[in-house]
Amino acid sequence: MRCDHDRARIALLLDGELPAPERDAVTRQASDCADCRRYQSELLALRGQLRRARATPSPALADRLRLRLDYEAAEMAAGPARPVTPGRRAAQLLDRLEPYWRAYGRQAAAVLAACLLSVAATLWWVGQNAGPGPDQAHDVLAAHVRSLLQDNSVQVASLDTHTVKPWFAGRLDYTPVVKDLAADGFKLEGGRLDYVDGRRVAALVYLRRLHRISLFIWPAEGPETAPQRAKIDGYNLISWRKAGMRFWAISDLDETELGQLPELL
């Protein structure tokens, strides 16, 4: 066998990529020369092995996909336009400001830069002084209580983490951790979007016996922190940071039982 060249042609033949006029010649060669024959059977054996290693999805995946797509189609039909994103709104605003921009561009830029600088300085100063401050705790408390006042505290109801987690895709710019904690006595009820600390966040709802737990998750840079506990109006709150995420758990559940959550997540 003239080595590499012939091997390449045998591979092309087996991949169905050899031009028709050459097929006969290469087929003949593959059966005549012993080395070629060996190479060909090796490739075929490998192919057989690989085909058998093909991974198959769980039988439920097709139904789950259909369900999600139905949901998506219904949502698209309900609101023909997606909500105006801050980016698009800013672009519209800029268009409208175009004439003024031309006239006063330079002054405006200077004023804007000064404003941004002072805002940044303020934010930095605030950031230096605030941990997961009392504001966050009150936001979390308000969001939790509000969810209890409504008929339904979840927007997507499912025990299945693989239904809940993808539901957040497209609604948030991050992916929250959604774990099945049924074995540890925390039953997943579902999830919803909420608004805490000035941003949209994922809220997961777990049930422990009859106690409802809201778990809020959003990205937060910084090192891991040990769970901090608080008690407001009879509710127990725990907050911690882990794997680039800020977690807040709140419930009327007993403090020690709620305290298991940070270890499980």
Binding site: P57, S58, L61, R68, L69, E72, H162, P166
Partner: peptide, 14 residues
Amino acid sequence: AEDVVQDAYLRAFR
């Protein structure tokens, strides 16, 4: 992998 497929199918549908 199943989550990836779901996410990809939603994007594809859109």
